[in-house]
């Protein structure tokens, strides 16, 4: 990004992505949805279960999971394939509903929200990164990143400014006009990260974000996560790779729908353990 992003705030609810204070570790302006205070954990789930199917074909994907994630934490969820990681993540991301149990997001009960409010929560408070990128085909990188802002009701000029800033953050300023099929896997995932970031969500969720990437692209994504967490962003990432989990401050292990291990690797208010503390874009290779 060539221009400094310190423009007037227009009075809307979003902080501007990529503005300098993000990197200084200041808490971001919270999109108010319910009586959230900084004291509330970002995420609090209690005794959540999820049962798929009925009768003979019943699968108990989650068998009572309780988890609290504090503001600024960086959590890796590990576990064998089929242990319920994705199921848990989809519930946290408000894409699916638990069979039983409660889920509080920033102190507000998600289960009590109607369809319209749920859409708003997905739009403003959660950034979701998928293993398979899930960009919309035949739309430029810029248009893809602008999309959440469009659904959030941000005006066109402001939207463009923030989308460009978010793409700058992930080192793709020179690829804004490219469509997904004109980008490498690593670049597509970085566009997806920019899209997840652009609304300044409270919580960044990633389901095996590096699962489809080579080692260099994996490093890029992990470096971005490290710096985002250093800037105060709460991150929950699913992975089955120890290398990825090593970047997190806390590692939670799932087995057969239960948490079997919860280990802290670094304090919540400190930097992530493997952060590469140089200039924001310097560490990123441009491909």
């Amino acid at each position: 990004m060539s221009s400094p992003m310190n423009g007037p705030m227009d009075g809307d609810r979003y902080g501007s992505a990529g503005s300098a204070n993000r990197w200084a570790g200041e808490p971001m302006s919270e999109p108010a949805e319910g009586p959230a205070t900084t004291a509330d954990p970002v995420l609090l789930i209690r005794d959540v279960t999820k049962v798929y199917g009925e009768g003979e074909a019943t699968v108990r994907a989650l068998r009572g999971v309780s988890l609290t994630v504090e503001r600024g934490d960086y959590v890796a969820i590990m576990g064998a394939s089929g242990s319920g990681k994705s199921t848990l993540m989809n519930i946290i991301g408000c894409l699916d509903v638990p069979t039983t149990g409660t889920y509080l997001l920033g102190g507000a009960d998600v289960g009590a929200l109607d369809e319209v409010r749920l859409a708003r929560v997905r739009n403003r408070r959660i950034g979701f990164i998928f293993q398979s990128f899930n960009l919309i085909p035949r739309m430029s990188a810029l248009a893809n990143v602008e999309l959440p802002l469009a659904y959030g009701g941000v005006r066109a000029a402001e939207r463009r400014r923030r989308a460009l800033a978010a793409l700058g953050l992930v080192g793709l300023s020179d690829r804004v006009g490219h469509q997904p099929n004109e980008l490498s896997g690593g670049q597509q995932q970085r566009v997806a990260v920019a899209r997840a970031l652009v609304t300044s969500p409270t919580l960044l969720l990633a389901d095996e974000p590096t699962g489809a990437l080579d080692s260099t692209s994996t490093k890029d994504i992990l470096a971005i996560f490290d710096r985002l967490n250093l800037g105060g962003k709460t991150i929950v990432v699913i992975t089955h790779e120890d290398d990825v989990a090593a970047h997190a401050k806390r590692v939670v292990r799932l087995m057969d729908g239960r948490i079997v291990d919860d280990r802290r690797q670094a304090p919540v208010d400190g930097p992530p353990p493997l952060v590469d503390d140089r200039s924001p874009t310097g560490a990123m290779s441009e491909r």
Binding site: I136, L147, G152, R195
Partner: peptide, 16 residues
């Protein structure tokens, strides 16, 4: 359908 899913996941309201 997948595109609709993506749009909803990033917060598209039903009305949109």
């Amino acid at each position: 359908t997948r595109e609709i899913g993506i749009r909803k996941a990033i917060g598209a309201p039903r009305g949109a």
